[in-house]
C-alpha cells in the first residue's frame, strides 16, 4: 500500500491562531506578575536575609551572614523535619489508596451521577479546614462510639503495639495526626486523579481484556500508566501542603507529634527568634523542592518504560 495514500487519511491538526500583540500581553501580565514578584519573590529574599541576621526583637537585627544558624537549626530540629516528611508521605500514600477507587468510580462508572459526586467531593472544602479538623475531635473523642468500637475489636491495642498511639484511645496520637492529614488533603488527591481518569478511554481497557489481559493486568498495564499524570499531580498537591501543615498536628496530636510548621510558627510568633525561624522555613522549602524534583524525575521516567 502506498504510504502517501495513508497520509491522506489524516486531517491536518487545526492550528491555533495566536494573536501577536506587541504591548497588549505585557499590559495584561504586568499587574498580576508584579504582585507576585513583590509579595512572593521578594519575601523569599528577605526570608533568606533574615536567616543570616543576628540580634533580637528589642535591639533590632543586623546582617552578619552567619550561616552556622542553618547547622544549628538542623541539629536542633531534625526530628521535626524528618517527622513532617514522614507524616506527609504516609498521608499521601493513604490518600492515594483511598482516593483512587473513588476517582475511578466517578470518572468511569458513575454515569449521570458524576456531577453530583463531584460536588460532594468538593463540598467539604466549603466548611472551614479548622472546623472540620475539630470535628475529628468529636468523632474520635475518648467517650465516643468510634473509640468504643476500636477498643472492642482490638484495633486500639494494635495501634498501640505498633506505636501509632500511646494509650488505648485514638486522639492526641500519631495515628490521629496522620488520619487528619489524609482526610484534609484527600480532595486534592481525588480531583487531579479524576481529571486524568476521565480522559481514559474505556475502550482501551476493553482492548486490553480482548488481548488476554486479566482485569488485574489491564489495570497494571493500561489504566495505571495512563493515570500517572493525575497520580503525580495529586501526590504533589497532597504532599506539599501536608509537609508544612501544623493544624492537624496541633489539634489532633501531642507533644511527640510536633511538625516543623508548628516550630516555625512558634519561633516566629512566640519565641520571636526570627533568624532561626527563617532558617527553618528555608530548610523546609529546600527539602520539599529536592524531594519533589527527585520524585517528578523518577515518575517521569517510569512512565516511559
Amino acid at each position: 500500500m502506498a504510504e502517501g495514500a495513508a497520509v491522506v487519511g489524516t486531517g491536518a491538526p487545526v492550528r491555533k491562531p495566536v494573536r501577536r500583540g506587541r504591548w497588549v500581553p505585557y499590559a495584561l501580565l504586568a499587574p498580576g506578575l508584579l504582585w507576585l514578584v513583590v509579595f512572593f519573590v521578594v519575601p523569599m529574599i528577605t526570608l533568606g536575609s533574615q536567616s543570616l541576621q543576628e540580634g533580637n526583637i528589642d535591639d533590632g537585627y543586623v546582617f552578619t551572614g552567619n550561616v552556622s544558624i542553618y547547622a544549628d537549626a538542623v541539629q536542633r530540629y531534625w526530628p521535626h523535619l524528618v517527622r513532617s516528611i514522614g507524616y506527609a508521605a504516609t498521608a499521601t500514600v493513604l490518600a492515594l489508596v483511598l482516593g483512587y477507587p473513588l476517582a475511578y468510580f466517578m470518572a468511569q462508572k458513575a454515569g449521570r451521577w458524576k456531577n453530583i459526586l463531584l460536588i460532594l467531593v468538593i463540598a467539604p472544602f466549603f466548611t472551614s479546614f479548622l472546623i472540620r479538623t475539630l470535628a475529628w475531635r468529636n468523632i474520635l473523642s475518648d467517650d465516643g462510639p468510634v473509640v468504643a468500637f476500636a477498643q472492642s475489636t482490638g484495633f486500639t491495642s494494635l495501634l498501640q503495639a505498633v506505636g501509632l498511639t500511646s494509650n488505648d484511645t485514638l486522639l492526641a496520637s500519631k495515628f490521629a495526626v496522620i488520619c487528619g492529614l489524609t482526610y484534609n488533603f484527600l480532595p486534592f488527591m481525588i480531583l487531579p486523579l479524576y481529571a486524568s481518569l476521565e480522559r481514559l478511554d474505556p475502550r482501551l481497557v476493553e482492548a486490553a481484556g480482548d488481548l488476554y489481559a486479566s482485569p488485574r493486568e489491564a489495570f497494571r498495564r493500561v489504566t495505571w500508566p495512563l493515570s500517572l499524570p493525575g497520580v503525580v499531580a495529586g501526590t504533589l498537591l497532597t504532599f506539599i501542603p501536608a509537609a508544612g501543615d501544623f493544624i492537624n498536628s496541633r489539634l489532633l496530636g501531642n507533644t511527640e507529634t510536633v511538625m516543623i510548621g508548628q516550630v516555625i510558627d512558634s519561633q516566629f510568633l512566640r519565641v520571636l527568634d526570627y533568624p532561626l525561624a527563617a532558617a527553618l522555613s528555608f530548610i523546609l522549602l529546600t527539602m520539599i523542592v529536592v524531594l519533589v524534583a527527585f520524585y517528578v524525575r523518577k515518575a517521569g521516567t517510569e512512565e516511559l518504560v
Binding site: 512572593f40 519575601p43 526570608l47 508544612g244 501544623f246 510548621g261 516566629f268 522555613s281 522549602l285 520539599i288
Partner: peptide, 13 residues
C-alpha cells in the same frame, strides 16, 4: 507548590 508556612513567614519578614 510552596508550603503556606513558608509563604506566611517570608511575607512577615
Amino acid at each position: 507548590a510552596t508550603p503556606e508556612v513558608v509563604m506566611g513567614s517570608s511575607l512577615l519578614t
